[in-house]
Computed example of a mutant assay.
Amino acid sequence: MTEWKTYGRRRVYESPWVELWLDDVEIPGVGRVDHHVVRMPKACTTAVVTDDAGRFLLLYRHRFITGQWGWEVPAGWAEPGEEPAAAAAREVEEETGWRPGRVEPLIGFNAMSGISTMRFHAFHMTGCTRIGEPADRSEASRVEWVAEEDVVELLAAGEVPEGASLAALSFFLGPYRSARRRRGSAG
């Protein structure tokens, strides 16, 4: 299959958080169509935060758009000129009241490749220090350290319905850990 060809684009809506465009594209075997594209002008960040006891720092919150309650990892936007790692650390502090010590890249992923430019930069954070209550109390109804076996159960039960949280936690618990074990045993 060949790549889609783009002939032009028209902005339909714009805000500081999201842009909606109609792209004039040619789809091989289909022809030319207007394709909706959601563009995100700011980088998206998320963080898997763990402690020395193997617990995960999670938020329990309601998302009005989907009408669902669920567990999530801290996440947010990078401001213009702000590095994604710094933005993720800032979001952890604002949303949880815990300041990360060590921040390391985990994975980058496209959240909705078929319709959006939304790309998440996920990080693993450790060595957190409690600095007080969350600065943004509207982010979650609860902030808790959750044991790893409980996180796995939450994932399996569909209690982590938000995509970035699901992807970051699943990647951390699976491929990331597996690769670290292989590197550790080889070195």
Rank of each mutant, 00 (worst) to 15 (best):
V25W: 05
S113Q: 14
M40N: 12
K5W: 09
V30P: 00
A75E: 13
P74D: 00
I27L: 06
A157S: 13
W145A: 05
T45Y: 02
R55K: 07
L20R: 13
Y60V: 08
S170R: 03
E72M: 14
E162L: 03
N110L: 14
L22D: 11
R99K: 14
V37Q: 10
R39I: 07
L57R: 04
T46M: 00
G29V: 08
R90A: 06
A53D: 15
A89V: 06
G132S: 05
E19K: 15
A186W: 10
W69Y: 15
F109D: 00
T2A: 09
A186G: 07
W4D: 07
A43F: 09
I131N: 00
F109I: 01
S170L: 03
C44V: 12
T66K: 07
P100L: 01
Q68A: 11
E14I: 11
T46Y: 00
E83G: 10
R182D: 08
F56E: 04
R11H: 03
R39E: 14
R102D: 12
G174C: 04
V151P: 00
L57K: 00
R63G: 02
A86N: 13
R180I: 04
V25I: 15
K42A: 09
E149Y: 06
R55Y: 03
R10I: 11
E133K: 12
P134K: 00
V48Q: 06
R182S: 08
V146R: 10
A168N: 02
R180P: 06
R99G: 01
G29Q: 01
L166Q: 11
V92S: 01
I107D: 02
P84K: 07
D23C: 04
M125Q: 11
V33I: 15
T50G: 04
V146M: 09
S165P: 13
P161V: 09
E26I: 06
S185N: 13
H62E: 07
R181P: 01
R180C: 07
A75M: 11
V25Y: 05
F64C: 08
E139L: 11
E94P: 08
F171C: 03
E159Q: 13
A156I: 08
P74K: 04
E26D: 11
F109T: 01
T126E: 12
S185G: 11
D51K: 02
F64K: 15
P105F: 08
E91F: 02
Q68G: 02
A89S: 02
A157Q: 15
E104M: 07
E162I: 04
R130L: 02
G114E: 15
G31T: 08
P16V: 05
G163P: 09
A86V: 11
I107M: 07
G158F: 06
A167Q: 13
L173G: 01
H62C: 04
E3R: 12
A53N: 13
E133L: 11
V48S: 00
G187F: 14
R61Q: 14
S15E: 00
F109K: 03
A86C: 07
G101I: 12
W77L: 15
D136T: 09
A179E: 14
M40T: 13
W77Q: 15
W98Q: 04
